[in-house]
């Protein structure tokens, strides 16, 4: 996508536009998570089309990794399916490139730092930029180890979305909030990714406190699995991230078009739940 002056927008600007549009339209952001290559590249492309049409604000594309310690059984199993079906980084970047050529919905790669490091930090960011990624979420990269990736993302104009969790002490949360670009990922519960029946009680206070500390939108993720939960979170945060529930929805569908239909239908419900008033 290009701006009026013809200058190509960078990843951070694409995200800013997407959040600004939500504001204009009086709704909260919905960021679904989809595993790249589950069950194959072609399906992922169709699913991205479908969730984009359903009104998703941006999408986290999970990059399959063999040893994902931050992920629960649903996403872990989707990574295993994708890898067994021959998913590679090259195929993942191809999916991103094909999609971003014709859509403005920003894509963020949720990637283990193991993969980024192995490929070379500068090289990996460059591949992301060239393919049209808007940024990265790196669930196993804490603040202390992130300087190099942070620098490369800033040079490339890509977002490096950071995570704050219930166990993060306030001083540290402040620093993470300050350094997060694109948006801030507020992890609702301690633990791995996965669906949960109830949201934690102190979530509202945590988000209100974080809002004072951060200039970027605050999205809440981990454990949100229904439109009703999304509505509750949308009342207090700038948006919701829904991962395992989307992945499971695709897993349960009977292949082909039913997968993209199921994912699109679920995202449409979430988008509806996140409308204000």
């Amino acid at each position: 996508m290009t701006a009026k002056d013809g200058k190509k927008k960078n990843g951070i600007e694409l995200l800013e536009d997407a959040f600004a549009l939500c504001k204009t339209e009086s709704r909260r952001a919905v960021a679904p998570f989809v595993t790249a290559g589950d069950p194959d590249s072609k399906s992922t492309s169709a699913i991205l089309e479908s969730i984009c049409a359903a009104g998703a604000t941006c999408c986290e594309l999970g990059v399959p990794y063999s040893d994902p310690i931050a992920d629960g059984p649903v996403i872990q199993a989707s990574y295993t399916r994708a890898l067994n079906a021959g998913m590679t980084l090259t195929k993942m970047f191809d999916v991103v490139a094909a999609f971003s050529k014709s859509h403005s919905m920003p894509l963020l790669a949720m990637a283990s730092y193991s993969l980024i490091f192995r490929n070379g930090i500068e090289a990996f960011v460059k591949r992301g930029q060239e393919s049209g990624l808007a940024g990265f979420v790196v669930p196993d990269l804490p603040l202390e180890e992130s300087d190099e990736l942070d620098t490369q993302c800033r040079l490339a104009g890509l977002a490096l979305v950071r995570l704050v969790t219930p166990t993060t002490p306030p001083e540290r949360a402040r620093e993470i909030a300050r350094r997060s670009t694109g948006f801030l990922y507020c992890v609702s519960v301690s633990g791995v990714t996965g669906e949960r029946t109830a949201l934690p009680e102190n979530l509202v206070e945590r988000i209100q406190w974080l809002r004072e500390e951060s200039d970027v939108p605050i999205l809440v993720g981990f454990g949100i699995s229904t439109a009703e939960q999304a509505r509750e979170v949308a009342a207090v945060a700038d948006g919701v991230i829904v991962g395992s529930a989307v992945v499971r929805c695709i897993e349960k569908a009977e292949g082909g078009k039913s997968m993209s239909d199921a994912a699109g239908g679920f995202v449409r419900e979430l988008v509806g739940a996140c409308r204000l008033n």
């Binding site: 931050a70 180890e145 950071r162 969790t165 166990t167």
Partner: peptide, 12 residues
């Protein structure tokens, strides 16, 4: 060496 872990474990 170093510490490449999810933020949830940093405090622990």
């Amino acid at each position: 060496g170093g510490r490449y872990v999810p933020e949830t474990l940093s405090a622990a």
